[in-house]
Design a binder for these strands. Structure first.
Lengths: 132, 132
DNA sequence: TCAATTGCGTTATGCTATAACGTGTGCGAT
DNA sequence: ATCGCACACGTTATAGCATAACGCAATTGA
């Protein structure tokens, strides 16, 4: 899926996420974009839906929040599992990928005769700086 | 963490989940327990908090819903990662565990100097019966 | 007995997400 | 050219998920 030109709203949401330190909820994004003319949650959610589809943004299920994809790539290799560490102290989110986990999960799931559509891996805890 | 005697509300919520085919949201549980005297969401959420703490129930982050733990054991080995396949067709949830994934994830996370508190692995897709 | 803890019930509120409606714009087929 | 379609957009209303804050009752242990 090639990434098409982003619309105005999509660009604004993408920009807000890209410039943010950490993940943001849809409503936080909405607040940041009020000055740019955003007035309703749907404007944010519709843009997010597309950005998720293009692989430019990830949804963190355990946070009900969104982050810009940090992969340096051209977003062509959207096959593949994305995992996250999420620091409960500072909110920092780190995205990572690992083929070994991917293959192992894939084998286990196949053994169940299950067809994967989306895999969520999120690790909550504390980063080095915030560790108790 | 030994499992103490459950209170009345905890037992009712546990029972509702245990007898359910699939995952239930807190509000669905509330509706099922109205006849038993439940009136407010907090009654459900408070019971769920304890059941989660005891390891008798899991929360599915990608569904905002809860399932009874299907492990046959005595819930003493609460160390360890739990993973789920979630069928979008029939709603069936299958819980599974794998040491290889656990160790691999653990190593990757340690390399980030990150301390894990809770790991979420959820695979959305279709089970054999529901596959397209 | 007193203080601390835990569970419970209730009301109110806040956060997250989508339904349903209508408008405007670009673009290809007839 | 214009009709029909797909798509993005804007708005209002509503649905669904979760917790704050208050007070009461029962239990326990110093």
């Amino acid at each position: 899926m090639a990434t098409p030109q982003l619309t105005k709203n999509q660009s604004l949401v993408m920009g807000a996420l890209a410039h943010s330190e950490g993940p943001m909820s849809a409503y936080t994004i909405l607040d940041k974009l009020r000055d740019q003319g955003f007035r309703a949650p749907l404007q944010v959610y519709r843009a997010l839906d597309k950005l998720l589809e293009y692989g430019l943004v990830h949804r963190l299920e355990s946070l009900n929040a969104f982050v810009a994809c940090t992969c340096p790539h051209d977003h062509e290799h959207d096959r593949g599992v994305t995992a996250f560490t999420i620091c409960e102290g500072c909110g920092q989110v780190t995205e990572f990928h690992d083929e070994a986990i991917e293959e192992r999960l894939s084998a286990l799931v196949r053994a169940q005769n299950f067809k994967t559509e989306k895999t969520t891996i999120e690790i909550r805890g504390h980063c080095g700086s915030c560790a108790a």
